[in-house]
Nucleic acid binder design. Structure first.
Lengths: 342, 342
DNA sequence: CTTTTGTTGTAAAACGTTTCAAACAAGGCT
DNA sequence: AGCCTTGTTTGAAACGTTTTACAACAAAAG
């Protein structure tokens, strides 16, 4: 494969000139620029990224580490980030940890070896001291997405989770529901706590009581959510509506519905956080709180690019983006207990 | 960040010894090995991938280019490929072309600059001369997934599409269906042609006539499939079952079903190719032909690794993997025309 | 005691870029 | 004519590795 030296020889100029022509084309005369371009074309020269990163001390690579690329939220996020990165001349290295912390660690080490210029991290699992150390070792700007991590001073871009919880719950209340089951993630994680906070606020501002028996921690996962739904329905006073705070758990309760032959919204109402690509295709047609995934990816990248360029200084701030309620058919009015064929 | 020189100084050995200790640990005495390891640990040294690739003339990077990472088939594929790659010491660079050929080209150029050691390509769109040239310029082994490209001599791993078509159709025939609508991709692409081939074989071996009016080209896309379904149902003798040959088109017809208030399998039966993660959660619970995505990713990577290592020579061969029918609830017996509330 | 063989370590030369400082050319001023 | 400017071009050094070729030495063989 041709090197910059070959190009220089063919164009009859120095290597430095070729480099200048390719990188800062205004610093070289039109005459030579044309010669260089022609030579590049003829040899179909492609610079060697490794050599370049060695000399420039910057690789043009960005890392994106997510917990599960199979989750539509994350694949959409990747798409958004990659588009924005391409527009800024960066290439993104996607790391999928499959929710396993050992793999995440391995990836972080890999990213360090690759000398990435910046990292976008969608933190998963518990915040470990060890991870914090690995992140610091990277010695590059980091932007958090989806979940903030307190005390580390990183920029973050997250959903307005309180508002998401509030709106979902209010939507249900507006339809007449008074007992609303909340299937949530672990309260230790901010996201889950905030969503529940919104839920309580909505209840409060409608003058409804908060009943702890109606909330379950299903760890943001599908199967536990399925089971949690069962528990909720076994209550002496079961809920007439369910609010599931992420897409996996929403799928879990939809499955549970189908298992019991319950139909939605006739027998019970359902609203979830995270819109799903097929939410409009299948039954029930799911009403959901959509996250502005694209905007999240784009602002994360903008923040990161600014940090890298050094045009953004000071402590990290967290950007909060508004949720959007998309109303479909899964929420109706509550049905009297006996009418439901449980 | 520490360099190999720093490690050498701290361990009181030469740089060469550090390199040997790290790469071929058996060529250095236990004594020094320990010293080197300690120094590496203390400095938390991470080698510089760029420098290494410069010298070694190999980057440890593999490319994976797909048309749409948002499609579960491709995100599953990425997961499988990444796992297998990690096991072989490779890092994978995911390129999502969003089905746009210009972006695909840009990605291929990028991959050349990165000096990837090999490429896994899930070809999308038409086979262009231009793309073929770009692929050749890469000068690395290439393995095709999902679709083969004739005449270029690359290895490929694909589904047994004929069999997939045959099994899906036979499943429907076994339930008593005689008029089966086929919503297919463009026949120019092998995948689509083969699936249709299987469809015809199944018809033939059941002694059923092949009616061209029952097959539509929906370009493997959702919206066109939705419309194609409408056309099929407008026939004087509409089908009692639909076979959609990929996941997007399956979603399209499910939507069309819901739009018309048709239920499945009561009013019409449906089988699709590509299983979907939520196929069991929603209604209708979709019977589908599952592709062995994980196996596809793994064998693709194995093939690629062997080509790179030079342990595999000669012209490319195409590996054909068997489909798996997963039966759920979307296929029943045909209902007489008048009974269906169209 | 010399030679051979084998092991373990090292100095130095690449690998392909970018960038620094210096050289050079061509005008524009005194 | 001499002296600055200003703008282009270039030689050479540096970036952090791996590898080649060889040196040093010890052990085994003669």
């Amino acid at each position: 494969m041709a090197t910059i030296r070959d190009v220089a020889r063919l164009a009859n100029v120095s290597m430095a000139t070729v480099s200048n022509a390719l990188n800062s084309s205004d610093r070289v005369s039109p005459e030579l620029l044309a010669r260089v371009r022609a030579a590049v074309e003829k040899l179909s020269y492609a610079p060697h990224a490794g050599a370049r990163s060695l000399r420039k001390r910057s690789s043009g690579l960005l890392g994106l580490v997510v917990g599960d690329i199979t989750n539509p939220f994350f694949s959409d996020l990747f798409e958004a980030v990659e588009d924005a990165a391409a527009a800024n001349g960066y290439l993104v290295l996607l790391c999928n940890s499959s929710e396993r912390s050992e793999r995440e660690e391995a990836h972080l080490r890999m990213l360090r070896t690759q000398r990435i210029d910046g990292l976008i991290l969608a933190p998963t699992g518990a915040a470990s001291m060890h991870r914090a150390a690995l992140l610091a070792q990277l010695e590059v700007p980091i932007v958090l997405v989806d979940r903030a991590m307190d005390g580390l001073g990183y920029d973050a871009v997250v959903l307005d989770n309180r508002k998401a919880g509030f709106e979902a719950t209010s939507h249900l209340i507006a339809r007449g529901h008074r007992r609303i089951g909340l299937i949530n993630g672990p309260e230790i994680v901010r996201t889950a706590a905030d969503r529940m906070h919104g839920y309580r606020e909505a209840l409060l501002s409608a003058g409804l009581p908060f009943d702890p028996a109606l909330v379950r921690d299903a760890g943001f996962q599908e199967r536990p959510a399925h089971d949690a739904f069962g528990e909720l329905m076994a209550l002496v006073e079961p809920p007439t509506a369910i609010f599931a705070t992420n897409n996996l758990m929403t799928i879990g309760v939809v499955t549970a519905l189908a298992d019991r032959g319950l139909s939605c919204p006739e027998d019970i109402s359902l609203v979830g956080i995270d819109d799903l690509p097929w939410a409009d295709a299948v039954l029930p047609r799911l009403t959901a709180i959509a996250q502005p995934v694209r905007a999240m990816g784009e602002t994360a990248l903008t923040l990161l690019a600014e940090r890298i360029a050094g045009t953004r200084l000071g402590p990290g701030t967290t950007t909060v983006l508004a949720p959007r309620l998309v109303v479909r058919r899964s929420c109706g009015s509550p049905v009297p207990l006996k009418a439901a064929h449980v």
